[in-house]
Amino acid sequence: MYTHNKQVITAGTPAVNASKAIILLHGRGASAEDIISLANHLQLGNDTAIFAPQANEYSWYPFSFMAPVAKNQPALDSALDVIGQLVADIQAQGIPAERIYFAGFSQGACLTLEYVTRNATRYGGVIAFTGGLIGEELAIENYKGDFGGTPVFIGTGDPDPHVPVSRVNESVAILEKMHANVLLKVYKGRPHTIGADEVTQANQHVLA
């Protein structure tokens, strides 16, 4: 089983000169280069430092996000650690948590939601394009903190071949209980991709 090294592609304004930052997390079989192109469609502004970490084996964890967590170890814990290190790096360069944004697609969206919910605080915002919290059963004791009104957008298809809407709804309930301001959009019959309306909703709810 594999773990991850901290390999990060950057774009936008260097963090030392930026007023905010976004961490973009790619999906299974994709790359940091793939997800960083998403920044072109997000209303980030010229003062944003953009970070896209790369998973070893092009996958943050080997099995479905609905598998028992133990089956996805040590890759999952390693992936969460990489994000934690990156957040610490960004904060060390003068950007506080409330100016840090997260966005991910599919496996990257699941990892995004899992990280922020395990480390809830007032972030700039969170965008999850097709994702939910990770595990065969959700371990509520892992989710700590208070989002303090952090705007969160989650978009998903119904049905989606990888992410059941039931898990998305379960995840939304947990985030809302932790005081996230969640906007959920479910798109009937939408394939496993990022739709134009999702980008619009994310821009309006999270990045406006």
Rank of each mutant, 00 (worst) to 15 (best):
residue 106 S to K: 06
residue 54 Q to W: 05
residue 140 I to Q: 15
residue 178 M to R: 05
residue 39 A to I: 03
residue 10 T to L: 09
residue 177 K to C: 10
residue 142 N to E: 14
residue 130 T to Y: 12
residue 45 G to V: 01
residue 110 C to F: 07
residue 200 T to Y: 13
residue 73 Q to K: 09
residue 18 A to P: 05
residue 117 T to G: 13
residue 185 K to C: 08
residue 131 G to H: 00
residue 184 L to C: 04
residue 126 V to K: 11
residue 133 L to F: 01
residue 76 L to Q: 07
residue 83 I to M: 02
residue 174 I to Q: 06
residue 167 R to P: 00
residue 55 A to E: 07
residue 6 K to P: 09
residue 59 S to D: 14
residue 175 L to R: 13
residue 130 T to D: 09
residue 5 N to M: 14
residue 115 Y to A: 11
residue 126 V to Y: 09
residue 144 K to P: 04
residue 190 R to K: 15
residue 176 E to M: 00
residue 20 K to R: 14
residue 118 R to D: 03
residue 40 N to E: 10
residue 48 T to N: 07
residue 9 I to T: 13
residue 49 A to F: 02
residue 106 S to G: 04
residue 18 A to F: 08
residue 35 I to L: 09
residue 55 A to P: 07
residue 65 F to K: 13
residue 32 A to G: 01
residue 37 S to L: 15
residue 138 L to S: 07
residue 136 E to S: 12
residue 107 Q to D: 02
residue 124 G to Y: 02
residue 169 N to P: 03
residue 32 A to P: 00
residue 33 E to K: 13
residue 4 H to S: 06
residue 153 F to E: 08
residue 189 G to E: 08
residue 124 G to S: 01
residue 74 P to L: 05
residue 174 I to S: 02
residue 91 Q to R: 13
residue 83 I to V: 03
residue 19 S to W: 03
residue 31 S to W: 11
residue 71 K to W: 15
residue 118 R to M: 07
residue 80 L to W: 05
residue 132 G to K: 08
residue 197 D to I: 06
residue 28 R to G: 02
residue 105 F to C: 00
residue 113 L to I: 05
residue 77 D to M: 08
residue 48 T to G: 02
residue 136 E to Q: 12
residue 101 Y to H: 07
residue 103 A to E: 06
residue 80 L to Q: 06
residue 47 D to P: 02
